[in-house]
Design a protein around this nucleic acid. Sequence first.
RNA 1: GGCUCAUUAGCUCAGUUGGUAGAGCAGCGGAUUGAAAAUCCGCGUGUCCUUGGUUCGAAUCCGAGAUGAGCCA
Length: 294
Amino acid sequence: MIHEPLYLCGTTASGKSACACAIAEKMGGEIINADAFQLYQGLEVLTASPNEHEQSQAPHHLYSQFPLTEKLDAARYEALARPIIAEVQSRGKIPLIVGGSGLYLKFLTHGCAPAPPGDEKIRAELDQLTVDEIYRRLKNLDPEEAARQNSQNRRHLGRALEICLITGSKASDLRKNFAIPENTAHLKGIVLQWPREILANRIAQRTAQMLENGAIEEVKNLPTNSGTVRQAIGVREIEAHLRGELSREECLERITISTRQYAKRQRNWFRREHWLTPIDGSKGLDSILTSLPI
RNA sequence: GGCUCAUUAGCUCAGUUGGUAGAGCAGCGGAUUGAAAAUCCGCGUGUCCUUGGUUCGAAUCCGAGAUGAGCCA
């Protein structure tokens, strides 16, 4: 019997890991990571990766798999996760895909557009330009794409321009050829939701816990050539603290705020994924287990 | 006790020669298919400490009071 994957989403600090373990134990599942930063090895504390106890409760895949110098992206993630999902299915177990990285999840649920991967040389060049310059260049090559992007978003504009430069054709054409599937009937998943105040408290507590448990050491030991992973919430703040620019207390406060803001963005993302079944995270694991959409 | 300075948005502060106020941060709303924990967009009514006065008109000038900080006793 082949089991469809069950997606377990939710904002940061919504209790996904614990919930995943409970589901895996009860229903015979294996957990597959869908968090962009927990893929790396060396920032387990800062990224709130599942602890040893949790990992011993059920098989976990794609956690702490890559060195901090690696540059992963959503497409590579999809390519990594697919065979693992198939493997879990072949064992007759349920693939439990758990994580909060909306884009990564979307690649899994809706597929990957046939676009070229990022090019470091091009990105390094674009980094030298102002947003206005990037926008102008994109507008030149692909006015349609420029029109649908925000003229101030260097990341999104840069990606579109990069596609044009690599392929020699228009990013907007590529977009037309790749329609995001609208049929989501086959998708099964839940999104854990919490009252905002309570989630804010959980975030504050967990952040304090991280600093206690070695997040500062992790950042201290970051290799200088670590790329993507420097974007993780907490890295900048802790580095500022290590330089003496922020007190420990200020550092804690800054990370807590950033995390709260991130949770808000996640909430936005998941709200648009209508196929997800919302579940009240504060109801407790037993209650959650009985309201799964399977 | 005397003198000086401060008091404006949740916080830190701007506010030109009097014409009922605006930035950053926070907060709220939103976008987002190969960097996504990233990146970006939108949202500012608040007893301008209180109270008398001057004035057509006061956050702005004058008096008194309150609170805080500093200096002198």
